[in-house]
Design a protein around this nucleic acid. Structure first.
Lengths: 253, 253
DNA sequence: GCCTCGCCATGATCTGGATCAAAGAATAAA
DNA sequence: TTTATTCTTTGATCCAGATCATGGCGAGGC
């Protein structure tokens, strides 16, 4: 069981803002707990209103494909709750997960009008959907938002480089430790506590993210558990014994 | 010997534009052969002039460190000729090259005011230097440029994801074939011929880019040579026998 | 010329993590 | 409750690529 705080959202699977916002009710955005983390952080009240006009909110169950690699990219997404994975496949089925997206993360950017990867929900998820065309128009109108989006892309680029270092040069144990630290840091940025880390994804997903097999991921977890570096708790939580020790394990120092 | 077309540049190591642009002479930017590939492509004559005001051109010999990981990020760079490698290190010296930068490529973006990687020249290189502060001011003034930079970052992000797939899931042979195809495609985008591919970097650099050792890179090259997939020519050039065959080898199909 | 020095190739051996196989544990269905 | 079904752990074996070691080759330096 994964526990998730739904920032907002109703039972309907898709709803336009107009429909979901009866007269007098406060707009969902103003209650959005991840707004400060994402592109919306840069916006004034009026700009936020304009953005809200083009946005839809959606919810998906776990294991749902949001879009597939190669499909025309007509929508941008923002995660408001839950976890999404994005991955690329080789013809024979080998898979590389290039990222896990948490509340506040943005996805759906495209290169030549089609998605370069598949996006699939790991847990139940709520998303904001922005039609690409209208979003682009808004970006032209609000340079602050353009700038914010650029800065988010820069951060992602830096994270991608860290991941390349991990994939190309780290051992299995270093990979797992780095992964746990990453989850911890990301939780921290979202105002959750850093230590018992919530790990909502399966061993297979972790393996495909770290360039390993499920067996190796499993073995490495038990090895870390045996050496008292971590302990596994109820509800997919991992307790890190000593943050600094784990950091050393993550860098092979 | 690496053959390089110097788009512009003089003997002086560093020169401000003012000094290098005597009255009546055409500004270097207008002669720049890579302008259409980079951030400058988006600009009008007047905007280009403003950009040129803040730019310096520099040249470095092969093997020179442009900046080191962790240094304060005060300058953005644009490659105008030659090849630059950017890499990250682990404490024990393991290295991951996260990219080779060719003419038209931009680098030096930072996350929290310091560079997240080291940049080092592979061949003799000429660069445009933009002071970060002044560049940011200009970006605020010219949203088109901001947008262009964002789109370049998006492309890099997509390339980074391809590289993650390569590092995490491809075999040595697939990695080498992918690498050769990448070089070929990038040459093509720059208007050079796609087939005898110029490979200016050492076996060690290729290894650190692909997450392999020099020995494996070397062995894989000879293996591809033996199986008639490629042949090695004079001057660090690689002749690809059949593009489509190589593409299949690169994806394990 | 000859010597160094840094690359590159190739051979021999080793090993971390993959693969193959099977038995628990958890979750969901009946 | 029992029974599928899927996920995780653990064991045994294998192998792609790392590591260790050596020799060749080309470019500078003297």
């Amino acid at each position: 069981m994964t526990h998730i705080d739904f920032a907002y959202g109703r039972d309907a699977t898709v709803q336009t803002n107009a429909k979901s916002d009866p007269a007098g009710e406060i707009h969902p955005c103003s209650a959005c707990t991840v707004r400060t983390l994402t592109v919306c952080a840069a916006l004034e009240a009026e700009e936020l209103r304009r953005l809200a006009e083009i946005l839809q909110t959606t919810r998906f169950d776990a294991g749902h494909t949001v879009f597939g690699e190669g499909e025309p990219a007509e929508t941008l997404y923002n995660v408001t709750s839950g976890t999404v994975k994005v991955y690329k496949l080789l013809p024979d089925g080998r898979r590389q997960i290039t990222g896990f997206l948490l509340p506040g993360d943005f996805f759906g950017l495209s290169v030549n009008d089609s998605y370069a990867y598949t996006a699939e929900t790991v847990t139940p998820v709520s998303l904001c959907r922005f039609p690409r065309r209208r979003m682009e128009a808004l970006l032209d109108e609000f340079p602050k938002m353009q700038r914010r989006l650029f800065s988010m892309a820069s951060n992602e680029l830096a994270a991608a480089q860290d991941q390349m270092l991990l994939l190309g040069r780290k051992t299995a144990k270093e990979k797992i430790c780095s992964f746990l630290l990453l989850l911890s840091q990301r939780a921290s940025r979202r105002g959750h506590k850093t230590n018992p880390v919530h790990v909502p994804m399966s061993r297979a997903d972790i393996a495909d993210y770290l360039g390993l097999t499920t067996e190796t991921v499993s073995r490495t977890f038990t090895q870390l558990k045996t050496s008292r570096a971590i302990s596994l708790l109820e509800g997919n939580k991992v307790q890190i014994q000593d943050m600094d020790d784990l950091l050393e394990l993550a860098e092979g120092a």
